[in-house]
Structure formats: C-alpha cells, structure tokens
C-alpha cells in the first residue's frame, strides 16, 4: 500500500501522527512528514489515520505496477 497526503489541504491536526506514529511524524509543530510506502503491519493503523483525518487529506491505494500495467 502507498499513501500520499494532500498537504495543500492538511491543516496539521496530527490525527494521523497519533494513530500511526511510525508512518506520520510532525516536523516542528505543524509540518507533516510521512512514509509513502506502507508495510503490511502498518496498514491497519494507516487506514485508521486516513479515516480520522479531519480534512480527508490522506489518500491510500496501490501504485501503478512497475511493468506499467
């Protein structure tokens, strides 16, 4: 699973950081840094984070596969 956060929408509510602290981190008080590639053991937490984001800025899905299909 991959994620991308629409940081144009993100308002730094940090709900994602609380719920999946290995994947999302605050940089300073408000800036968000995250790991785009989600290992299987973090998938459930990331789903919770995506559901919780107050501005629904976290998008999850699979990436286009490398052979272009």
């Amino acid at each position: 699973m991959r994620i991308v956060v629409d940081l144009t929408r993100c308002q730094g509510y940090a709900q994602c950081v609380f719920l999946a602290p290995k994947m999302f981190q605050l940089h300073g008080e408000e800036g968000l840094l995250y790991a785009p590639a989600v290992p299987d053991d973090q998938a459930e937490r990331v789903r919770q984070a995506a559901a919780a984001c107050p501005v629904q800025a976290i998008l999850l899905g699979e990436e286009v596969s490398a052979d272009g299909r």
Partner: peptide, 21 residues
C-alpha cells in the same frame, strides 16, 4: 518528499510511488 523525507534519510527515494485512487 524528495527534498524532505528522502534527503533526511527517513524514506528511500524509490518509495514515493503515488497511490491510485
């Protein structure tokens, strides 16, 4: 992320593939 997480060494450069909606 290339100028942020990747340069900080927190994530690999080849890991930023965009998810499909």
């Amino acid at each position: 992320p290339l100028s942020k997480q990747v340069l900080l060494g927190r994530v690999a450069a080849d890991s930023t593939g965009l998810p499909m909606r």
